[in-house]
């Protein structure tokens, strides 16, 4: 497993520096991390990290402006793909943010808003637990119910519950904080800000080839 190219997708939404630095911090030798906004780089990469910040509408617009729609969808079907925060939400069919936005539709389901209450402030901001549902290579060496750093006001609701790899409790509900299918793994929390647990997740991603071919 030498000379693996991991592309961090830059579509102008949010700062990629922290994600890149965290991945570099734990990258095994031979693993190269490149920030790119080109569809061809996504197509040629061995693995993809797909972060994202900001509103759903702006994210989808930026993806279209950079002509990344097809390359992203293809990558999310065919190679190790790590979606982070908005990079999870825009994989869904539809988000209810910004009066409704159609998203990439890689995962069937919607994105819903939390209801605030005196006990549940919005955004859901801070360290919360992720309950791991299945044994998955991405959870390797991450203790059950570890805390990750979250900042978000919307959560994903997939049609197929089989895809749920982790759940988190907030605002009187248990929401899907991690989805996975094949080589796709997407997480609502920010592993790049989640200290040891987050760094371990990046490490797992970079050593998660699952080369069946």
């Amino acid at each position: 497993m030498n000379n693996k190219l991991i592309v961090v997708v830059d579509y102008g939404m949010g700062n990629l520096r922290s994600v890149t630095k965290a991945a570099e911090h734990v990258a095994p030798s031979g693993c190269h991390i490149k920030i790119s906004q080109n569809a061809s780089d996504i197509t040629n990469a061995d693995a993809i990290i797909f972060p994202g910040q900001g509103a759903a509408k702006a994210c989808m617009q930026a993806i279209k402006e950079h002509n990344l729609n097809d390359a992203l969808l293809q990558a999310a079907q065919s190679k190790p793909f790590l979606g982070i925060c908005m990079g999870l939400q825009v994989l869904m069919s539809h988000s209810n943010e910004n009066n409704g936005v159609d998203c990439l539709n890689r995962i069937e389901g919607t994105v819903e808003k939390f209801q605030s209450s005196p006990e549940a402030k919005i955004p859901h901001m801070g360290w919360n637990q992720i309950h791991q549902h299945h044994d998955h290579p991405m959870w390797h060496k991450i203790p059950q119910d570890s805390r990750f750093y979250f900042v978000h006001s919307y959560y994903v609701s997939p049609t197929n519950p089989q895809m749920i790899q982790g759940t988190t409790e907030y605002a009187n509900l248990t929401f899907a904080s991690c989805l996975a299918e094949g080589q796709l793994f997407a997480i609502q929390a920010h592993p790049e800000k989640s200290a040891q647990a987050g760094l371990q997740l990046f490490k797992n991603f970079m050593t998660w080839p699952i080369e069946s071919a």
């Binding site: 801070g126 360290w127 637990q129 309950h131 805390r147 979250f150 907030y170």
Partner: peptide, 8 residues
């Protein structure tokens, strides 16, 4: 189980 209070 839930959101932790933060110390900064």
């Amino acid at each position: 189980m839930g959101l932790a209070k933060r110390i900064i």
